[in-house]
Every structure is written in structure tokens, then in C-alpha cells.
Design a protein around this nucleic acid. Structure first.
Ligand SMILES: [Mn+2]
Ligand SMILES: [Mn+2]
Ligand SMILES: [Zn+2]
Ligand SMILES: [Zn+2]
Lengths: 136, 136
DNA sequence: AAAACTTTGCAATACTGTTGCACGTACTTA
DNA sequence: TAAGTACGTGCAACAGTATTGCAAAGTTTT
């Protein structure tokens, strides 16, 4: 019988290898977005590059999305089941200036914006910075 | 008699050295935001680190603001005269997915957002990505 | 079982940003 | 003006993150 993790991976056309299961489960447990380095820390002996490529595969298949919060390390978080990272699926992210944690604000979609003449919208990265509930 | 550049620098309490004048004028000429590397290219023989520190000084004194557009290199653009990079001064930036140029959308302020309970707003980095007028 | 393809581990590398230190220049003050 | 001090610049080294080539190990297909 197949586990829940395997189903989630296959749902997004990702072959569920051991590595991928583990990385998925790490991301699933978290409330916050994780950097490559933070994921690496959760293992005893796994290759940065393997995790890197795992994350790339996940991202290419819309299992996760990446957030560049300006801290220097890109962070990753799970997408919703039906997400394809199209404009309508985008949400705002919050970086705590104190603890450095980055959160998905899934209830705050990226607002529609009227761009100046000639500019077309494809994608967005909206990061709000401030203090999180834990740090105040 | 003092030049326009010197006045701009002194207005923000920056001593106008030769280096600083040149970097300022490079930024002033541009319609788009420039990376450290791009600025370096405009000189024959200047030190990365000197430009780096020049930009840091500029930023500390609200002469320029930085934009992390996710391309890996932070970009810089001039602030308005009265800017102090407070929430009200923030605007959205546009990164062209084709040519890689990043523009200040100074007429698009960062919208006020109601954050979830417990989160406070200090700052923001909103980047819209798409195709710019030149590339379509 | 062999061939073909995919995933992983290892090592090396690229790129951007950042710092220590020494030297030179500009400003301050006696 | 001369000495003393603060500031700015150049050079070199380093740190952190992302990324790639290549070969070994594992998986799937014929
Ligand atoms: Mn998110
Ligand atoms: Mn701007
Ligand atoms: Zn926090
Ligand atoms: Zn363009």
C-alpha cells in the first residue's frame, strides 16, 4: 500500500524516490519556508547537490514554490494541490526581520496591478518584512 | 561654483568625492536600476569594493535604494529627493524576463496590506516580472 | 540479462557580496 | 604651516550560495 507522500508526489508526476520522500516530508512538517541549507541540516549525510536537484524537480512540477526574501538564500515551501504557480496562485510572503523566518501568507493573493502601458505581467515576488507574532 | 551633483550629494549629507560623483552620475543617467557589476563595467579601472562601499554610503543616506529582483545581483536606483525609504516611499519594481532590466515603477506605491494578527509591517520588496515595452 | 534511462554523490567552479589592512588624501587644530 | 586625526580608496583574501560535469549506483524497459 502506498503512503500519502507517494501519492502527493505522483499527483505531480514526480517519481517518489527515497530522497524525494524525505525532502517532501520535511517541507510538509514546516509552517515556514526552508532554505536549501536548512533542509540539508535535517539530514545526517546528504549531498547539497542532490537536495538542490530534488528541489528543482519539485519546483518544475509545481510541488513547491521558491521565495527570494532577500536574505541571500532562496527558500522553498509546498504549493497547494491545485497550484500551477500561475498569477492567480501567487501569494505574498512575510519575512521576520528578527528571527529570519519566512511565511507563506496563503490568504493574501498578489493583488492585480495595472502596469504602465506596454508592460505585461507574468509573475511576481512580493515580500513584506516586519516582525512576526513569535518575535513581538 | 558647485555642480548639481555635489549639491545632490550634500543634500543627503554625503561628502562629494570624485568616486561618488561618478557613481552618482552613472545612476542618474539610467532609466533602469543597475547592479554593482554593471556599474563596475562603466569604469576602466575601479575597485569593486570601492563601488560597493560607495553604494552602501549612498543607501545609508537614502540617496539610493536597492532592489532584489531575484536575478542574483542586487540592483540600485536613485531615490527621490525627499525619500527616506519609509513604507510610504516604497514602490513596486518591474523585472523584464527577457532583457533582465529592472525598472522603478515610481507611480505604483506598495499598497497598504492588512497583515494577519500579530504581524507588523516594516518594509517591503515587491517585484513584478513580465515583458517590458522594449521586448514585446 | 542487457541496454537505456534516471538518480545520486562527489568534486570542482562561478558568482556575488563582504571584510581586513595598509596607504593616501583631506580636514582640523594647535 | 605642521602635526595629528578622520575619512576614503585599492588590493587581496574570504564567505556564502548556487550550479555543473562526470562517474557510479539504481531503476525500468526490452
Ligand atoms: Mn508561499
Ligand atoms: Mn525603485
Ligand atoms: Zn520572527
Ligand atoms: Zn525587456
Amino acid at each position: 500500500m502506498k503512503g500519502k507522500t507517494d501519492k502527493k508526489l505522483e499527483q505531480k508526476n514526480i517519481k517518489p524516490t527515497a530522497m524525494r520522500q524525505l525532502v517532501y516530508e520535511i517541507l510538509e512538517k514546516q509552517k515556514k519556508a526552508l532554505s536549501l541549507y536548512e533542509i540539508e541540516q535535517q539530514f545526517d549525510n546528504v549531498e547539497r547537490s542532490t537536495i538542490f536537484r530534488t528541489l528543482k524537480t519539485f519546483q518544475d512540477n509545481y510541488l513547491i514554490h521558491s521565495i527570494d526574501d532577500g536574505t541571500g538564500a532562496v527558500k522553498y515551501a509546498l504549493c497547494d494541490d491545485d497550484c500551477t504557480c500561475k498569477p492567480d496562485d501567487l501569494h505574498i510572503h512575510f519575512l521576520c526581520n528578527k528571527c529570519g523566518q519566512t511565511h507563506c501568507m496563503k490568504d493574501m493573493p498578489v493583488p492585480k496591478m495595472d502596469l504602465a502601458e506596454g508592460f505585461s505581467f507574468e509573475n511576481a515576488n512580493f515580500v513584506v518584512k516586519g516582525i512576526c507574532p513569535n518575535c513581538r
